[in-house]
Design a protein around this nucleic acid. Structure first.
Length: 475
DNA sequence: CTATGGCACGGATT
DNA sequence: AATCCGTGCCATAG
């Protein structure tokens, strides 16, 4: 149900209300990229629609206001910092933050396709892959579990595709060396071995590491150094260093904690999402900047009913009249629904920008736990409307990271980052219940059990598998 | 006895 | 109506 008291006379539509509602819902669910496609399709098939010329802002090429400048360049600098500047911008490719505006964007600068883990990996290895092995690779990658490990036995893959096992292994070898190193391995053990191998190419690794992982991974994870030392023939002191090295550098679950956090890491962070639906930038560089929130909505303000078409309707050939009339109605409906969609979305994002200002400026730790229901109540919308509006949309933050809009509704992110900080700073491993105490001091009240779950989510090992962070570096 | 993981329940989310 | 998430209770390992 759309019910919005502040809404313009959109309510005074037509007897089309059911169709209107239905389409608004559908549109609301789409993100910018999908909407773009949809509108392009409509433009192509419906002669009643046309694109109206718009003037561009001379400074940034966004469509301009009456004054000639766009809302951003036109904004005065002495507004209240609590009031974000919000405006709607029609096309993603008019403007790319951080990238100087160019007349022609080079080919490889165009929007990336939305990538999930399998696609991301596939793109990396495709060049090295013989064409007939591509399907094989794609098949393997589509059978990864959420940890980035292969769920299906290799033999089965080979049988399914009627190729020798050796070929499957060769392809898998390539996959394992692609970016989340170790991805696609059949077991944590193999993942770690692959990582070790890659690591060895750039830096020295302890000679016994490989053996330790091969024969004693379970001992390693249980901290049973003496036992392990006996097994691989090394003093327990050396084994301890070994364990330290392993837990610092290797990750048994290559796919985990990979999508969430895009840190400086080693390489460049992979672009995971397409163009964002919202771009947030500071108006000026300062500690307490005014936020500029740009809502990307394809063709916003550029779409209208072709006036010529409307005129021509009267003189329509009788056999075509019905068709034309329905085209016109559809076009009108689309335009109204789009207005409705942007309006709802703008109200939503405005509220979010105000409520989550601290988060936008200062990062994960300051994210307010916010529920859709609560926002729905404030905006007098139905919660399902919020859900639809939030679904599958992304926001680009000040630091250039693109995150799903749903992240603004994450109930536990702030606690999880606090937890990560605690663990990063700990000198010796803290137990979960000790962490509960520390979190409580910070004002986060969570159950002991929950801390364990958060750890798992972040890919942090249990305390007895973690190492003292004070001593460091082997020779 | 302490630290964790597993299972299941209730409320929130979609 | 189906699913996800935080939590409590219990079993297990050290």
């Amino acid at each position: 149900m759309i019910q919005s008291p502040h809404l313009r006379p959109v309510t005074a539509l037509r007897p089309l209300t059911t169709a209107h509602l239905a389409q608004t819902m559908t549109l609301l669910e789409m993100n910018a990229a999908e909407l773009d496609q949809k509108i392009e399709a409509d433009l192509a098939s419906n002669p009643a629609l046309e694109i109206k010329d718009t003037r561009c802002c001379p400074q940034c090429r966004r469509p301009s206001l009456e004054s000639g400048l766009c809302p951003r360049c036109n904004a005065s600098h002495n507004l209240s910092k609590d009031e974000p500047i919000i405006f709607v911008s029609p096309r993603q490719d008019f403007y790319r933050p951080g990238v100087p505006i160019q007349e022609d964007l080079p080919e490889d600068n165009l929007p990336q396709i939305t990538e999930d883990l399998p696609t991301y990996v596939l793109r990396q290895i495709a060049p090295e892959l013989p064409p007939n092995d591509r399907r094989l690779a794609a098949y393997i990658l589509s059978n990864l579990d959420e940890d980035g490990l292969l769920e299906v036995p290799l033999v089965e893959v080979s049988r399914f595709h009627h190729v020798p096992l050796s070929r499957v292994e060769a392809v898998l070898g390539l996959i394992q060396r692609a970016d989340p190193v170790g991805v696609g391995s059949p077991s944590p053990q193999e993942a770690m071995l692959a990582q070790l191998e890659v690591l060895a190419e750039t830096q020295p690794v302890p000679p016994l590491a490989e053996q330790a992982i091969r024969v004693g991974l379970d001992l390693l994870s249980r901290h049973q150094y003496v036992e392990l030392g006996r097994l691989i023939g090394a003093p327990s002191r050396q084994v301890e260093q070994l364990a330290h090295f392993i837990s610092d550098n290797l990750n048994p679950f290559p796919g985990r904690a990979y999508w969430g956090d895009i840190r400086q890491g080693k390489g460049v962070s992979p672009p995971v999402y397409t163009f964002p639906d919202v771009v947030i930038t500071p108006l000026t560089e300062s500690l307490e900047p005014i936020l500029v929130v740009e809502v990307v909505s394809p063709y916003a303000g550029m779409l209208r009913i072709n006036p010529l078409f409307r005129q021509a309707l009267n003189q329509a050939p009788s056999d075509r009249a019905d068709q034309w009339r329905s085209d016109l109605e559809q076009a009108e409906l689309l335009v109204k629904c789009l207005q409705q969609r942007t309006h709802t979305f703008v109200r939503l994002i405005t509220r979010i920008a105000i409520l989550q200002r601290e988060y936008i400026l200062h990062g994960d730790e300051y994210l307010q736990p916010l529920t859709r229901a609560c926002l729905a109540d404030e905006l007098h919308l139905h919660e399902s409307t919020i859900s639809r509006a939030v679904a599958s949309k992304t926001v680009q933050l000040l630091n250039g990271h693109i995150v799903p809009l749903a992240k603004f509704f994450d109930r536990s992110l702030n606690v999880r980052t606090a937890l990560k900080q605690i663990i990063a700073q700990e000198t010796n491993p803290l137990s979960d219940s000790q962490i509960v105490g520390l979190l409580k001091c910070l004002g986060y009240s969570v159950a002991r059990r929950t801390v364990a779950k958060y750890r798992a989510m972040e890919g942090i090992l249990p305390s007895h598998f973690r190492q003292n962070h004070q001593m460091h570096e082997n020779s």
